[in-house]
Nucleic acid binder design. Sequence first.
DNA 1: CGCGAGCTTGATGCCGATCAATGCATGTGG
DNA 2: CCACATGCATTGATCGGCATCAAGCTCGCG
Lengths: 245, 245
Amino acid sequence: MAAALAAIRIEPFKVACSSCNLRELCLPVGMGGEQLERLDELVGQRRSVPRGEPLFRAGDSFQSLYAVRTGFFKTCVASEDGREQVTGFQMAGEVLGLDGIGTERHTCDAVALEDSQVCIIPYQQLEDLTRELSDLQRQFHKIMSREIVRDHGVMLLLGSMRAEERLAAFLLNLTQRLRARGFSSSSLVLRMTREEIGSYLGLKLETVSRAFSKFQDDGVLEVKQRQITVLDPAKLQKLVGNAPC
Amino acid sequence: MAAALAAIRIEPFKVACSSCNLRELCLPVGMGGEQLERLDELVGQRRSVPRGEPLFRAGDSFQSLYAVRTGFFKTCVASEDGREQVTGFQMAGEVLGLDGIGTERHTCDAVALEDSQVCIIPYQQLEDLTRELSDLQRQFHKIMSREIVRDHGVMLLLGSMRAEERLAAFLLNLTQRLRARGFSSSSLVLRMTREEIGSYLGLKLETVSRAFSKFQDDGVLEVKQRQITVLDPAKLQKLVGNAPC
DNA sequence: CGCGAGCTTGATGCCGATCAATGCATGTGG
DNA sequence: CCACATGCATTGATCGGCATCAAGCTCGCG
């Protein structure tokens, strides 16, 4: 109970989009001057989410979107009969909670995979502000649209790729997003378990593990538990899409 | 060439959302009076798309969204190496083209599965109007959000269901949407081939065919080519989600 | 130090892919 | 009007990739 309360503590101090180093990746893309000031008024609070704790759960009433400031999240949906599917992993600058707009309730769980912080974006106020700032409106719509396109990519992966192709595509996607944030694209630490990767990719954890081992044997990766080094990015790229059919 | 020109002919006469019998399913949900008039100004043109022809293709410049007025569409994405994945089937009242907002180019093909008509919703003008009409803005955001939620559902299906569960889930989804449009939910004519169903569900056409035959043997369905009758909806419902694990 | 969560690796089995043949409806040209 | 072509669907036989079951390993942590 105490832990649950701690999990939803809200940071009282202000954070400014205008001084955030993620502004080129996040909601403020392409905005300047006065627009950024207006956005600063909107996004006034952070929230800390300890590792393993939910930011929100399916069924929760929808009030806000969240921009990841630091840390790493997963989102997962469940069917009535208890099956779970990880639908995405989110890192700094990415937006969480878009699923809640349609029904005014969240439809998935968002769980921190490490100690994280998010910026709270009150949705009603965001809608009000996007009616004034067309650049913000445009950017918000783009974020939603890209989420749809990303989901289509995952469908393609789940519907037509074999296990090793899926893992290769997943790793390439991760390294690409890390590079966009100024991190090395050849060395990364996975924040999620094999089981979570497997759930995302529609595979069992053993299959994920075997694929990692295979990539290591083939000299594509070095794998030390969650510490991954990409030795041969070109070969990894080729592994995605040498269709057998 | 003549056929291509015919495919993009635009109907010159006006159609009004205010008098459309799909308005409770489409963009105008929850709007009345003056708002509907404004929407009528925006959505002024239809376009006919003959069976088999694309409404748009991946790579096309994005200008408009489309609301299906009559007919039936599929959307599909392709990877560089030529694999295809059907990402959805759209019927009357559903919106096509949301994928294009993010990059200002369409990222998937939308193809008519029967002779169809769509209403053209010029995107720039829609953005302008949503800045004035908060009800329209809200509804538009809900449509995008629900598309995201729908995609998550497909991921769950592709990532964790077995063949027969997938087909059962697909059929239940179809009948539900048909019922919402006033059609019988026990008798339906599929507008897509077994191969297209298979692509959507991550299965081969033979597997789809076998699952249909199995359902017929079990007395759940009557299957005559594309004419499907649901004999036992409860059993169909149970087929989704008796997880083996 | 020992426990437990997470990871690796091996052996086996099953579901769905693949290959192949046949059936069925629609349409077309002689 | 029939012969034939064509596209789609069904069904059977076989194969392979991934799931499943099981055992041992690694590492962080109380």
